[in-house]
Design a protein around this nucleic acid. Structure first.
Lengths: 257, 257
DNA sequence: CCAAAAGTGTTACAAGTACACCCATGT
DNA sequence: ACATGGGTGTACTTGTAACACTTTTGG
């Protein structure tokens, strides 16, 4: 792994260390205050936001690259991360973004710079605990912040499409595998879990049926504790039974046919 | 699009036309005589088989590349084709294959040749009508032939893993979307369709339940004709109702939650 | 006339959906 | 005391699974 001291050094030496023409874009989902959120960067001199992205070291597994990018942006490791699509439209790239970054850094780069080529990008999506994230911008960006998924700012290039595809993948995923461990704190209530599901799916679910279905998967442990200090009846706390959770992750929930 | 006259020309000029370090591997499924089959290439001077593969022109959409590769190998266009995964282990590559090809062509290539770099590969899988395929080998191979999926020869690099992942994807796909139009001739019998499903899923299904379920999707048209010349009772022929078939492809079959 | 494959229908069980009542707590 | 949210149970509907008999045809 290499440390670059500036955008300019990145521009000059990056081509030596990274695979050419391929990047990784991460759609990092978090959940807070009943809202599904995505982590986005803002770019100096540029009007639209972008996804946390990065490149692949020449000797690095692509999953490791994604993990590294995630760690750099959030400070977190060991979280749910999965590739979901590769975006390969030749028109997807917009060199104006890179040029804006260069301009801001006072650089004039020749057109054959490695950063100004056509890039394919591998989409990864991550599920993280909102509370634990310590968001940091990268070389190219000014801020790194959470945005509500249904109130996103304008996104650069095809990043809106990438977020959309990630969300669709997450929704599908949700139906056949457990989700939640990575998005919620260690202890949570059933209504909180339900709210997460409703947010991801974008629809209301029946309280009682939801609870029954969730419990039927056998991946939850009901704790003796109850959430305190809230209005109305105190809800029970649950935690995931990690052994069973991971087993379910591997095997999936359903098995039609 | 560029025509290369020899492996050597490909080696020398390919780097100018193709994106670096990314290839496409196609898992082409066909169905014949109750067997699910995959199209594989054999390489001169080399002991194991490989998947039909190719590269991405610098101005080309990756889906178009996959389509082109498929056309070149099978003579078919307008067939079901879908990317399913990108394989990015830095150790996945084996330059010995390329070297074997070079050797066979009487070439000694410098180590920095574009073909000898680390490659990521995008996996696409295709479903084709076995009868219509006119298989042709490519620059690098000697033969292009069908192999039974459960009796595959040794495969080069990570191609066995790629086939496995494609099959898993196809199986999942089968549960939620219609499959069959691309793998079967225009007219087919219900037992033939069932056999296809059983083969892909690797398990026996109940005749009566299968038929009911299939018909319930409303994507089949029962024809007045029956298959003739077969032993025993003549089965009815069916065809797909393409309008409804494509609608189902878009919407999917199920909608849990 | 019989073996083998194809057409068709019924019943039982599991899963999903819809819905109602009681309980606990903070205001 | 009451409004609000949380805990729990039951009937209905739908889908899946298991299973048997009749029909046709080639040998």
């Amino acid at each position: 792994m290499v440390e670059f001291k500036s955008v300019n050094e990145f521009r000059l030496k990056g081509g030596k260390y990274f695979m050419p023409c391929i990047s990784i874009d991460c759609v990092i989902f978090g959940f807070h205050a009943g809202q599904l959120k995505v982590l986005l960067l803002t770019i100096a001199n540029y009007s639209s936001c972008g996804l946390p992205a990065g490149f692949i070291y020449k000797e690095e597994h692509i999953d490791a690259s994604a993990k590294r990018i995630l760690l750099e942006r959030t400070g977190l490791s060991d979280i749910f991360l999965q590739q979901f699509y590769i975006f390969g439209d030749p028109k997807r790239c917009d060199e104006n973004i890179t040029k804006a970054v260069f301009e801001k850094a006072g650089i004039t780069a020749p057109a054959d710079n490695w950063l100004l080529q056509r890039f394919l990008t591998i989409g990864y999506y991550a599920l993280v605990d909102f509370e634990k994230v310590n968001a940091k911008p990268d070389y190219f960006s000014e801020t790194c912040e959470w945005y509500d998924i249904d109130n996103l700012p304008p996104l650069a290039m095809d990043h809106a499409q990438i977020v959309q595809k990630a969300l669709l993948t997450l929704r599908t995923h949700l139906r056949y595998e457990p989700v939640g461990y990575n998005l919620l704190p260690a202890k949570f209530t059933m209504p909180e879990l339900q709210s997460l599901y409703e947010t991801i799916l974008g629809q209301k679910l029946d309280r009682r049926n939801f609870q029954r279905k969730m419990l039927s998967y056998g991946i939850l442990k009901k704790l003796k504790e109850q959430r305190k200090g809230v209005a109305h009846k105190a809800p029970y706390l649950y935690s995931f039974d990690l052994r069973k959770y991971h087993k379910a992750l591997e095997e999936g929930f359903q098995s039609a046919w």
